[in-house]
Amino acid sequence: MGLGRHKLIVLVLGLSITVLLYLLLPSGQPEEGDRKAEVPRSDPQSNMNITVRTATLTGDWPTFYREAIPRNALEGAERFSVLLLHGQIFSSKTWEDLGTLNILAEHGYRAVAIDLPGYGESLRAQPMSTEKGRTDYLLQVMESLGTRQPVLISPSMSGLFSLPLLLQHPDRLRGFVPIAPVGTKSFKPEQYKQIQVPSLIVYGTLDTNLGSQSLESLQLLPNHTLSPLEGGGHACYLDRPEEFHAALLMFLSKLS
């Protein structure tokens, strides 16, 4: 009887110690707020953790954005930021679905894609009606995001935002990647010739409209590289994503 009572006491004591250790050890689970703000993802090939976030910038123009951040960026060692705009029938989700955000983050860049005013999930923001308004808007977004001299990727319609910024505030950009942007004819050849920002001019060889038209003006940029995507249409990055990503990463590596 005494021996049985002794075994019972030992068993209860062992269970108590186990429960106590379980409660004291960290669970490894994120806080509730962290789960809502970001979703960590890992690339199976590089084993680099990538944090993906979505949020809305407050201010005069509420702007929805998506970003992918590599682990080293969270530790304060990121290369630089890449800011992605979009065409008229697209949004920031286009770059997520294409894999561009994750690919950039896998290579050490902070990648941020925004929904321009009146598009995607930025519907509460009124569309910009003036060149100055569009320029001020991008400057505010860059300031709010904390992007120091980003590389700006600008397809099609978003040229109405990016070109005035490039030509009026070239010091605010580390690099420029126009993809058949709208509005190139609104500026004089002399304006392009004065810009020293490294530029990667991307266009689809089948885009005989905006692709060839914008190329005529963009080639006046002194520090440019051409990247024709064979067989690509107007949205050539969708038609030839592998070639587009390869050209983009090569360009970015030269800016590091």
Rank of each mutant, 00 (worst) to 15 (best):
M128S: 15
T130V: 04
E131Y: 01
E131K: 04
G133L: 03
R134V: 00
R134Q: 02
T135G: 08
D136H: 13
Y137F: 13
Q140N: 05
Q140W: 12
V141C: 09
V141S: 04
M142P: 02
E143N: 08
S144K: 15
L145C: 07
T147C: 05
T147V: 15
Q149H: 15
P150G: 03
V151G: 01
L152Y: 01
I153L: 12
P155I: 03
P155S: 03
S156R: 08
S156V: 07
M157F: 13
S158T: 06
S158W: 00
S158D: 01
G159D: 07
G159A: 11
G159S: 01
L160D: 05
L160V: 09
L160E: 07
F161D: 00
F161S: 03
S162Q: 04
L166D: 05
L167G: 09
L167T: 13
L167S: 06
L167M: 11
P170F: 00
P170H: 03
P170Y: 05
P170D: 06
D171M: 07
R172S: 06
L173N: 01
L173E: 00
R174D: 00
F176R: 03
F176Q: 01
F176D: 03
V177R: 10
A180Q: 05
A180P: 13
A180C: 07
P181A: 06
P181I: 02
P181F: 11
V182N: 10
G183F: 04
T184L: 14
T184S: 10
K185G: 08
K185E: 13
K185L: 14
S186Q: 15
S186T: 13
F187Y: 09
E190W: 15
Y192E: 02
K193P: 14
K193I: 07
Q194M: 15
Q196T: 08
Q196F: 07
Q196W: 04
V197N: 11
